[in-house]
Design a protein around this nucleic acid. Structure first.
Lengths: 332, 332
DNA sequence: CTGAAAGCGCTAACAC
DNA sequence: GTGTTAGCGCTTTCAG
């Protein structure tokens, strides 16, 4: 495979018999031209198949019209939906969105972001990253927004309130009559503590006890592997909340394999409301954390920062309880 | 938020009392230095918080150490898994992977790729794009690889063979004793025709008829919406194959809502083997198309092209039948 | 309306 | 080992 050099602005200028400055202005549509020049430029560009080198352009203007989004794990539908929302808004505003996957690996995050940052006008980052990286981001001469627990510190963070999300779910489940709660958390995520706090807020006053467990990764498989630890205890909970829908689905599946009836022997609930949760059996009760809207909102905000416009207001994200059969127990 | 200019190589040079060339060589670790200089450089860089501007670097070297991957729809787990595989190999070889989502929208693809191309050393593109874009890609001075039906034309394309995939599934289903086949395809994808060909290859000789339907997007919801059209026919198929697992799961769900027993009244099979297919009820029979391996292989190949090394050989992708309960019918 | 010239931040010869 | 210099492809004053 040959590698013919791409034509540059200079090639176009020469072919059209004008100066490179004129070509530049023409390509950027910055002013009008004499019909003769315009025609020659059009033709030369067409012929050469010229297109701007956005790298060179970015270097001199300092603007890339691209935004970077680093997520923990693209295979997690919650994040794919955040990406979807963000992408749509970016495109609608003339920006490109470049996504990088951090592979749930905190260690490798820094080089990834260092590579991404100069290629973008702004960065959106999953909040769960180490302090030295956030410090580095703060020193960056670019707008940065985080995904996660909102309003923390003085940085822009977009997401639903974890305490509220957990409390919402707990309140409903207590009202349903569940008495022994299990929570399969993910302690590597900072908001795990907030979730527990939200649960306790409701469970403690209600006099309901909470058993806390942990998965080592927030996936179906991890939920499946961890389920037996909870289910085979003598004091088995009558409802188990998963760190997210994936974990809950994994646990629910394993419970059924072990011969438990869901929700009658044990009920399950998740968090996130990923699309597939409607399709599992029984359909999973969960809390909608507005994944796609999160992406939209964070993108709108970061674009406002980049363009130095006033921050859009009234973009709140209200988690919503999604009640499905996995917790519709018939207490006798 | 202030935007302090980032320190440049010149700032470092001045602060350390050396030339910019020395700084450049130092940051790129290209040679050794006198201890004095080394120490001063280290300190200056530390102090200023200097880091390379990869844009500027890329401009002069022509290398970005980044690879772009454009997929049709990141919310489709098949693609997220391709991304996963590709990302892992990229990282292992010192490349960054930037992903862009084309939103299943053929129209907007060109500008997306034009923005992505100059920022990368090579491009991986979902094959389902219009001719003028493939032509443009061919003229690009960068390696390009496609995702999809392998070995077509003279371009590098990685994927499982659609004809083979469909035939594999059909052969098994015929052997199971199914007599009336339905196929819910996605005609906007070029490989839909190959799939049909693969099915016919088996069904025709077996004297089994095939009813063909179509979804307008390859999603759960579309499968759900389309299911009734197939299920409520007088000549209802006894097994329905979905364009992919998402469509099959959607259809299966709707079938159960309509009161059909799966697989006894009607069986379902998908294609892709996305992770969630194990977790639906009944678990979905499908064909594993090696999503993650596809990402790995295509990345290995494109890296070989970029580095002008010999193409790795023996990287074939063998689709595998995954038999689960959704087709385990007990014929009486 | 068009062009000349000065860089953006960096690397790559080539000298010393 | 270290420094000088000439650009990479482009935009942007500033003249004309």
């Amino acid at each position: 495979m040959k590698r013919p050099k791409r034509p540059t602005i200079r090639d176009v200028a020469e072919k059209a018999g004008v100066s490179i400055a004129t070509v530049s202005k023409y390509v950027n549509g910055q002013q009008s031209f004499s019909p003769a020049v315009e025609e020659k430029l059009r033709e030369a560009i067409e012929n050469l198949g010229y297109s701007q080198n956005s790298l060179a352009r970015a270097m001199v203007t300092g603007r890339t019209t691209a935004i970077g989004l680093a997520v923990m794990d693209l295979a997690n539908p919650h994040y794919s939906n955040v990406v979807k929302g963000a992408n749509r808004v970016a495109l609608a505003n003339g920006y490109n969105l470049f996504v990088v996957d951090m592979e749930e690996s905190i260690a490798a995050v820094r080089p990834l972001l260092e590579a991404l940052a100069p290629r973008t006008d702004g960065l959106i980052v999953s909040a769960r990253i180490p302090k030295d990286v956030t410090d580095w981001l703060a020193e960056l001469d670019k707008p940065v927004a985080f995904l996660g627990q909102p309003e923390r510190d003085d940085v822009l963070t977009v997401g639903t309130d974890s305490v509220q999300v957990a409390a919402l779910l707990a309140r409903y489940l207590v009202r349903q009559g569940f008495k022994r709660f299990g929570y399969m958390g993910y302690s590597r995520a900072p908001s795990n503590a907030d979730r527990i706090q939200g649960l306790m807020q409701i469970l403690e006053p209600a006099g309901v006890e909470l058993l806390i467990f942990d998965v080592d990764e927030p996936t179906n498989e991890a939920g499946e592997r961890a389920a037996a630890r909870v289910l085979l205890r003598p004091d088995r909970p009558d409802v188990i909340i998963g760190w997210n829908d994936l974990v809950a689905i994994g646990m629910m599946n394993e419970a059924r394999s072990l011969g438990f009836k869901v929700p009658d022997d044990v009920a399950f609930a998740g968090i996130d409301n990923i699309p597939i949760s409607r399709y599992v059996t029984p359909p999973l009760t969960t809390v909608d954390v507005c994944s796609q809207a999160t992406g939209e909102v964070v993108m709108k905000k970061i674009i406002a920062m980049i363009e130095e416009k006033p921050q859009p207001t009234d973009l709140t994200l209200e988690p919503a309880l999604i009640i499905r059969e996995s917790t519709q127990r018939h207490f006798s």
